[in-house]
Design a protein around this nucleic acid. Structure first.
Lengths: 146, 146
DNA sequence: ATAAAAACTGCAACAAATTTGCAAATTATC
DNA sequence: GATAATTTGCAAATTTGTTGCAGTTTTTAT
């Protein structure tokens, strides 16, 4: 955690932003969890940050590659980029809205690095979302479409 | 296009929804374009659909795997799933917010199918977003951090 | 350490995006 | 074609995100 805070400071400073209480707070809340909605974060901050500042903070985090918005589990959420998190991807089931975690996959990461090189880009983060039907829901689908 | 409309009808019907004028309209608007914001779609529909119905339609499209919401180019947008579109992925530059299209990549698609099998899922669609710095912005980054 | 400058926060008001209830209209069923 | 079931548009409500500004915190340069 110490190390992460150091990286956070470095990134903010390098981009000309101050490192403040509310920003560290939000970073902390994002750190140990799954993607969270703005409302989740606001609630967990328990009055220690204003809505406006929260939104401003997330915008800065986005623009500096600290966090990113994602649409996952049928909601818009925010998560730290994979600089900070041992990230994983998700499959969301169209039938029951269940989320299935895909653990870190070397092949995917490698592929993305190749893509980045091909397009002369330094890739700092990425997200992959897959939609489909889980085993349970394949059954009910099959029944429904008879 | 005829074929796509057939698939659309099938999916809606199989899920117990009627196939209506506004729904076909929205599908048509989504069909020939890049991801679009709700506002884009509403505007292009030119009064032929109410905002409420548009939102209800998109929700149904999401839940039946016809369309999906994505966060791309720093905006929330909607696009058809890859059942309907020859989709591609994006790299967004954190510096200048430029979008770089990644053309369809066999390796990615194959990898996702493998993942799906491993998790006993039938994958119907997916999105991949990559963030990073384009060639131009790598330069300015380097200058800034001196 | 400390004062001045710069950046940031909270508040309140605002604007945009999304949701909901309900009567009228459309689509599906027989 | 008539009836039942579903969907639509409208208006109002809610939720989500933004903005201007005075006061506070952080940074910078002593």
């Amino acid at each position: 955690m110490e190390k992460k805070l150091q990286i956070l400071s470095d990134i903010l400073r390098r981009n000309g932003y101050s490192i403040t209480r509310p920003r560290s707070l939000v970073f902390g809340l994002l750190n140990d969890e799954e993607p969270q909605s703005m409302h989740d974060i606001y609630m967990r901050a328990k009055g220690k940050i204003d809505r406006a500042s929260l939104y401003r903070t997330i915008k800065i985090f986005e623009q500096t590659g600290i966090a990113q918005r994602v649409y996952v589990g049928w909601k818009y959420k925010v998560e730290l980029t994979d600089i900070f998190l041992h990230h994983h991807h998700h499959i969301s089931c169209l039938g029951c809205h269940k989320l299935i975690a895909i653990s870190e996959d070397e092949q995917i990461e490698k592929l993305i690095q190749e893509l980045a090189v091909k397009h002369h880009v330094v890739a700092t983060s990425h997200q992959l979302e897959v939609q489909g039907y889980c085993a349970d829901c394949q059954l009910s689908q099959a029944v429904l479409s008879q």
